[in-house]
Design a binder for these strands. Structure first.
Lengths: 178, 178
DNA sequence: TCGATCATGTAATTGGTTACATGATTGC
DNA sequence: GCAATCATGTAACCAATTACATGATCGA
């Protein structure tokens, strides 16, 4: 799902500014993605050119004028179409696996160190996601909560998987000690 | 791990051409990444400029001259350094979760359809990875085999996780039928 | 008084992909 | 005769990030 469709998805519920959209996105997708203004504002411009959203300008004094974007009928149609369209083939990129692939070039203690550090960061993510549970439970709809639970299970599985790798690392042929 | 380090990683074992490197990479990393000539050749040029590899040209008649790249001492050092360097914070991007997040806008049967199709593609990947097992067992070193096993478990877990999402989809409040 | 929040946007840069351009050899 | 393999490289393009630019208001 491209950025334009995501923005349309949020605008399905209510009209918003680019700034609001960034916040909504950060809260909801913090775990599995990210978005910056440098991509949001141009995307909104494109959506407007394509007639998928309309813009109302609210004049402000101190700050820049707020530009509130509202989804159009065409926008709703486009969003629903993209929501049903086939998912692109996924490639689970994994920086840690790249390292592991070349571990033969590393001393045993370095291998363990790299792997353990990675496991630790994953556990950090896990803790962080768990800590958000009350907020999610309060605001998410049924499907958004399913996303959250998917994330929890995903990280749980990842921790188990990495732990097995680390175990296998330990079991390795005992290297000659000095 | 950036592209340059990966190329150095392969060159640690033996000298190769850009063409060979692409093949080596495709075989080893097909599951979790991809690389094209459009990034390999420029990367080799950068590595050469930085003195991390040297180039020997083998004159050929029909085809373009083969350019065999060999890693230097500086290259080995750089590779080992990058292998031990901290992993960048990972973000498990997931196109399916984006969809799921907005599922409330979809009819129940469309939800199930999208989710089932995704599950099917993941199962395809799983089957494909399993089919490569003999080749991997024959050529991979200990750590490369660990990568392979990680991949198998990863896909297995993903299938379980998605199945649970699909189950929850079915359990949903019965919508009024026409 | 300092940082956060509100609010917009552009320019430079990154890190890739896809398509284009070339052309001989080998196996089916 | 046609597809695949060998072998290099560039140019156009794409989607995104980061840094830059601006500036008021409000709470600790």
């Amino acid at each position: 799902m491209d950025i334009q469709s995501v923005l349309l998805g949020f605008l399905m519920r209510s009209s918003m500014t680019g700034y609001d959209l960034k916040k909504a996105f950060s809260i909801s997708f913090a775990f599995f993605s990210g978005l910056s203004y440098g991509s949001i504002y141009p995307a909104l411009k494109r959506l407007e050119n394509q007639g998928l959203v309309t813009k109302q300008v609210e004049i402000q004094d101190g700050a820049p004028n707020r530009k509130i974007y509202t989804i159009t009928e065409a926008g709703r149609k486009a969003f629903l179409k993209s929501l049903r369209s086939p998912l692109p083939p996924m490639q689970p990129k994994n920086a840690f696996l790249m390292r592991l692939f070349f571990f033969s070039h590393l001393a045993p203690k370095d291998r363990k160190s790299v792997a353990m550090k990675h496991l630790w960061t994953v556990k950090q993510m896990q803790a962080q996601l768990e800590s958000v549970q009350p907020a999610v439970a309060a605001h998410a709809d049924r499907f958004q909560y399913l996303c959250f639970e998917f994330g929890l299970r995903f990280l749980n599985d990842l921790v188990r998987n990495l732990s097995q790798v680390i175990d296998a690392l330990e079991e390795g042929p005992p290297e000659t000690e000095p």
